[in-house]
C-alpha cells in the first residue's frame, strides 16, 4: 500500500510538469431543510450526502480558480404516521467554480458557485411500496476555507493533501411528488390488472443550508 501511494505521488509529480494542476476529493455534506414537509422523511432536518469531485486549477493574478465536477449521493429515512416507513434519496451531479485566495501557503479561503442537477426519490411503504423520482436543477454557493499540506518535495508543483470546510446554501425548485406509485413490474405477469393508480403526495422544498467537509489530493 505504501509503495502504491509513493508511486502515485511520483507519477503525479512527473505528470504535473505537463498538465494543469488536478485535484480529487471525497467528502461529506449535510443539507439542512427546515420545510415542514421534510419531517415526513426525517427527524432532525439533516440530509447527509457523500460527495466525489475532481477538477483542475487555473492560476489568475492573485487567485486560484478551481473548476470541478462532482457527484453526490445521500438520503434519509424514518417512519411516519406511526408505522409507515418513508425515505428520501438525493442523487446529483454538479459543476462548480471555486475561487481561492492563498492568504497563506497552507490556508486558502474560498468562494464556490455551482450548478447541478439532482434526482430526488420519495418512497412510502404501506400496503405497497410507493415511489417517485423527480429531477431538479440546483444552484449553490458557499464560503469556506481550504487547508493544504504538502506531501512531496518537488519545488515547482508538489502533491498536496487538501482539507476544506465550507458552509453555504443550495437553491432548488420544490420537488413535486405528484405521481407516487408502485414501481412498474418488469417482465411478463400472469393475469395482471389493467392499471395502478398513483398518489399526489405534494411538493417538498429542498432549498436549504449546506455544510461540507472534503478531503483529497491536489497534484
Amino acid at each position: 500500500m505504501k509503495t502504491l501511494f509513493a508511486a502515485l505521488l511520483v507519477s503525479a509529480s512527473v505528470a504535473s510538469a505537463e498538465v494543469p494542476p488536478l485535484h480529487a476529493t471525497v467528502g461529506v455534506s449535510s443539507q439542512l431543510f427546515s420545510a415542514r414537509g421534510y419531517d415526513l422523511v426525517d427527524v432532525d432536518d439533516h440530509l447527509v450526502s457523500f460527495r466525489l469531485a475532481a477538477g483542475t486549477t487555473f492560476e489568475l493574478s492573485r487567485l486560484r480558480l478551481d473548476v470541478e465536477a462532482a457527484f453526490r449521493a445521500g438520503g434519509t429515512a424514518t417512519s411516519a404516521h406511526a408505522s409507515v416507513p418513508t425515505s428520501l434519496e438525493l442523487l446529483g451531479v454538479e459543476v462548480a467554480g471555486v475561487a481561492r485566495w492563498p492568504v497563506l501557503p497552507w490556508l486558502h479561503p474560498w468562494l464556490k458557485v455551482g450548478v447541478g442537477y439532482d434526482w430526488a426519490t420519495l418512497t412510502l411503504v404501506n400496503s405497497t411500496r410507493l415511489t417517485q423520482t423527480t429531477g431538479l436543477v440546483a444552484g449553490q454557493a458557499a464560503l469556506g476555507v481550504q487547508v493544504l499540506v504538502r506531501l512531496s518535495r518537488a519545488e515547482q508543483r508538489g502533491v498536496f493533501f487538501i482539507a476544506d470546510f465550507g458552509a453555504g446554501g443550495v437553491l432548488r425548485p420544490a420537488a413535486v411528488f405528484d405521481s407516487v406509485g408502485p414501481a412498474p413490474v418488469v417482465g411478463p405477469q400472469a393475469d395482471p390488472l389493467g392499471a395502478r393508480g398513483r398518489v399526489n403526495v405534494g411538493s417538498l422544498p429542498l432549498s436549504g443550508i449546506t455544510l461540507t467537509w472534503n478531503a483529497g489530493l491536489r497534484f
Partner: peptide, 20 residues
C-alpha cells in the same frame, strides 16, 4: 369480466401529505 379493465388505487390517504 376482464382484469385488464380493472384499476387499483392504494394508499391515497397520503394525498397532499407534504402540503400540510
Amino acid at each position: 369480466s376482464d382484469r385488464l379493465a380493472v384499476s387499483r388505487f392504494t394508499d391515497f390517504a397520503f394525498t397532499g401529505d407534504l402540503d400540510r
